[in-house]
Design a protein around this nucleic acid. Sequence first.
DNA 1: ACTTTTGTGAAACGCTCACTCCACTATAGT
DNA 2: ACTATAGTGGAGTGAGCGTTTCACAAAAGT
Lengths: 197, 197
Amino acid sequence: MGRLPRFETAAVVSSARELFWREGYEGASVSALQQATGLNSSSIYHAFGSKRGLFDAAIEDYLASVVRPGLARLRAEQVDPEAIVDYLATVRELVLDPAGHTLPDGCLLVNTACSGIARDPEVAAVVSAYRSELAESFGRGIAARFPEASAADREHLTRTCVASLVAALALTRVDGEAAAGFLESALALLRRPHPIA
Amino acid sequence: MGRLPRFETAAVVSSARELFWREGYEGASVSALQQATGLNSSSIYHAFGSKRGLFDAAIEDYLASVVRPGLARLRAEQVDPEAIVDYLATVRELVLDPAGHTLPDGCLLVNTACSGIARDPEVAAVVSAYRSELAESFGRGIAARFPEASAADREHLTRTCVASLVAALALTRVDGEAAAGFLESALALLRRPHPIA
DNA sequence: ACTTTTGTGAAACGCTCACTCCACTATAGT
DNA sequence: ACTATAGTGGAGTGAGCGTTTCACAAAAGT
């Protein structure tokens, strides 16, 4: 019953996600969100309650449409020993793109962690869960690559790889070469025969 | 000639630096800066030209008063082989502080890199130079610790340590334990007898 | 056909933003 | 003492912020 919406929620959230990714939560004004989504503010507030509600939806969409597809091979039942290397090498290519068209704004969630809204406990929990998810996926990739290593060594290597990724995404905007360097050195660790001497 | 200022520039910039660190460039409003510094807006604009001018001064002060003193032992002529370990261990303690009173907001420059103002080329250059400065200092610490390692190995280890620091500072706000974990794993690399097997 | 429910459009809300203006005060040089 | 210069206080600028309101449009259930 009632009038049908003239928009597709998925497309709206996807547009909002792009804007938040580019401009950050504080930097994406509601009027810019109106332009990006094609909805006017009354529809936005009707559908999502607040700018914050749309942001939450955009984060969910980011995880579902950007993060998890990228991690798919690391989340599979059988993990390819090359999967973790391929993942980091792919991100390295993206941040190195000279035109900067592919991954110009780093990671929506890393950017969020460094912004004021990260003081909101719910937002902090989402970013923290994202880091856990990265760590779990990377851990599986590293276990597949170094099956004979100790759990402690794999744990350290996993955290180092996650740190290299987070740092690369944090600095993509200001220095793509440096970001690629972080990933290159993480790859160097993964290309050794054993994780720890 | 002319009336003398009723404030000390150093104290004003230091207060502004704290506010920008806590709230970010966009998040620190001019009226909040008035409260923090004790100056009213006309004095701020007279002395610094713009909010952005005060921000630039705050960044300079951050480098001079926070970053470089911390790196002092790594910038000395003779670098202690323990200096790089001590540095990372100290940061680890700071981000782990349960009350979060010591380093609650990560790094002013990392936060800046993840915000909208990082698209300004001058700001990007300052953050990029900060990363270079970190890398050079860490490189010296690692050369002192692993004098017999190859240049390539030291380079990789340096970048991995810088990445671990940057990632820890990026996530301090949302997950201090995870930030400490990044540093812990970097320390594990440094505590091995040789950087690469 | 009519009621009920829901989405839409446009205008406006009070508020804060970065910034400016100007009269006034205070000092240094002459 | 006077002039030139520079800092201060306070009110005010227009623009933009997130959000709300409300009359109206459109579709589902009876």
